[in-house]
Design a protein around this nucleic acid. Structure first.
Lengths: 225, 225
DNA sequence: TAGTAAACTTACTAGAGGGTAAGGTAGCCC
DNA sequence: GGGCTACCTTACCCTCTAGTAAGTTTACTA
């Protein structure tokens, strides 16, 4: 059965722009379901209601098709984060909160997009791997910027530098990645709830560290203070 | 050029047990370098100084070979974490610290093992995917247990339950995952240093949250308290 | 309504690589 | 040394699917 075009009778002709988007739509779902290698261009073409050479004409190769999927979904995700962060208010932690919330909402709503972005990283060509890496770097830079703003604004700012901001950003993004799995096992949890928990876990700790509280393995956390 | 057996002349006969381990050794490096699909059994066999049918005789199939790699490396990683945690002392945070430290050390030392475990998750058969998931679950359970102990020991323990412990474990493991990338860009950082930063970021925050400090998006963190 | 460009198809090729059939050889025990 | 078992090889097949050559049809324009 086809998705676009009717199952029987004449298929409608569609301008290139629109057809490309239809192909990418289908490809995202198929790549998400089967993974890059197990996905066949034949299947994608058929589900898109089109024949294989059209896919090659428009997207060049299987890799080109996957890259197109990757780029489109990455752009959407980054845009969702950025615009939410921008609209999130003045304080860095509010912007970070808004961005994270948008991220979790995006993942909840566009499962296939997230699977394609998240679970296909390696295994693939240079070009694809670097596209994935670029997307992650973009998010990371965004988050690191917010963290850095948060550090700079605080009283103890001099204590930490941008390497620390980068560290925190990696930890945060990794935690968010992993929490998408946790969300899968807890369907009752809203993206906002997850965001709030994460912010509490990380931001409060960061604030305390900035104020000079330090944990070292020898002594229990702070009980005697 | 071969790795085991000499390049020219008679190859030595080797008992099955030992040969299997040699094959798996080679396979881990090749899978890490090329990814599951791009890796060919021919290449693995050749690098192992052996012919292809031997691989099939001992490991059944390409998938079986990969599973063997996965299981062996996962066992090693989990064992490293567990034994370090066990030896890490009585307090949960000390055990967690020791386990994380062992994890980062393992990743630093066994890069290929980590790549195989980490970057090959999807894309693969049911059996492989679930083997990866099992390994992750094992680590997750371990971490969640330690987190839970930490919560239970604290004064404010009633405030959080084991769902929270699970949440924190996911965040922690995800952060640790992601920080392996960060380590790649900061070769000067020791595993211990990374562990310490992470503990400070998370554990201090958790302690504070347990004591009742809560961050909500409307107000800035704690400045007025 | 002829011309034409873009949209589209059928039917094929190529080759990579997983998997195997059939057989050879080293060591060991009686 | 005869035979048995475990180790090991050569040489092959066969499927699967990315990619393409060549041709067809629709729709728009003049």
């Amino acid at each position: 059965m086809t998705v676009n075009g009717r199952t029987e009778g004449r298929r409608k002709r569609v301008p290139r722009q629109e057809r490309e988007q239809q192909i990418i739509d289908v490809a995202v779902t198929v790549f998400a379901k089967r993974g890059y290698h197990a996905a066949s261009v034949d299947e994608i073409a058929e589900l898109a209601g089109i024949s294989k050479p059209m896919v090659y004409l428009y997207l060049d190769s299987k890799e080109g098709l996957f890259l197109a999927c990757l780029r489109r979904e990455a752009d959407r995700l980054v845009a969702a984060f950025q615009s939410a962060a921008k609209a999130g208010g003045g304080a860095p932690e509010l912007r970070l909160h808004a961005g994270l919330s948008a991220f979790f909402a995006f993942v909840a709503e566009h499962r296939d997009s997230w699977i394609v972005l998240h679970r296909q990283a390696s295994e693939l060509s240079e070009a694809i791997a670097s596209a994935v890496a670029d997307a992650r770097r973009a998010v990371m830079a965004e988050v690191a910027g917010l963290v850095w703003d948060g550090i700079a604004e605080s009283d103890g700012g001099a204590r930490l530098d941008d390497e620390d901001a980068d560290f925190v950003a990696h930890a945060l993004v990794g935690a968010a990645d992993s929490l998408t799995d946790w969300m899968g096992g807890h369907p009752g949890q809203s993206p906002e709830g997850v965001t709030l928990r994460l912010m509490n876990m990380v931001w409060v700790g960061m604030g305390r560290v900035l104020e000079g509280e330090v944990w070292v393995p020898a002594a229990p956390p702070s009980r005697e203070g």
